[in-house]
Simulated scan of single mutants.
Amino acid sequence: MSFEETMRLEHFTERSFQQQVLASEQVVLMYFWAPWCPEEYRGMDAWVERVTSRHADAVKGVKVDVEQEPVLAERYIIRAVPTLLVFKGGQMVDRAVGAMTRTAIRRMLEGHL
């Protein structure tokens, strides 16, 4: 697998949420975003991808477009994007709202490995 292939976040939908997030044996880092996010926040895509690929055996990175998945956005009270949620054992264990550095994302995630 090439570096490019390891850098892909899965795009999740409400339909796949139960199986792919809540039932996952891996820690899941869920990245809520929107196409209208300011350009300075779009860099988080790459940071989330790099952090999750670094721990690919233990972490799954997923990306959710709040416009395409309003049910998930409402369920987790997503009022601003970007928002990151960490799930472990089917439970949300951490939340961060707003732009974050790669180091901050890594620290957030590694606190739950």
Rank of each mutant, 00 (worst) to 15 (best):
E4I: 11
T101R: 12
V86T: 09
V48H: 05
A104V: 10
V21K: 04
Y76C: 06
Q26P: 06
E110R: 01
G89I: 06
M108V: 07
R95D: 02
R42Q: 15
L22Y: 05
V64Q: 12
D45E: 12
T83V: 01
A99M: 04
G111I: 02
M100A: 12
E4L: 11
S24K: 07
D65M: 02
F32K: 00
S24M: 08
Q68S: 12
D94P: 08
M92N: 12
R107E: 15
V71H: 07
H55K: 10
A56D: 15
V71F: 10
K63T: 01
E67M: 05
V93P: 09
E110V: 00
F87E: 03
S53A: 14
D65S: 03
G111N: 15
V93I: 15
P70Y: 07
W36L: 03
S53V: 00
L9K: 07
G43R: 10
G98L: 02
H11R: 10
M92K: 14
R8P: 06
K88T: 06
M30D: 05
W47N: 09
G90W: 04
A96M: 11
F32W: 07
G89S: 04
L85H: 06
L113G: 10
R75M: 13
V81L: 02
A96D: 12
M44G: 01
L22S: 03
G43F: 02
T6Y: 01
A96E: 14
V97N: 02
F87W: 02
E49D: 09
R54W: 08
I77Y: 06
V62R: 08
G89K: 00
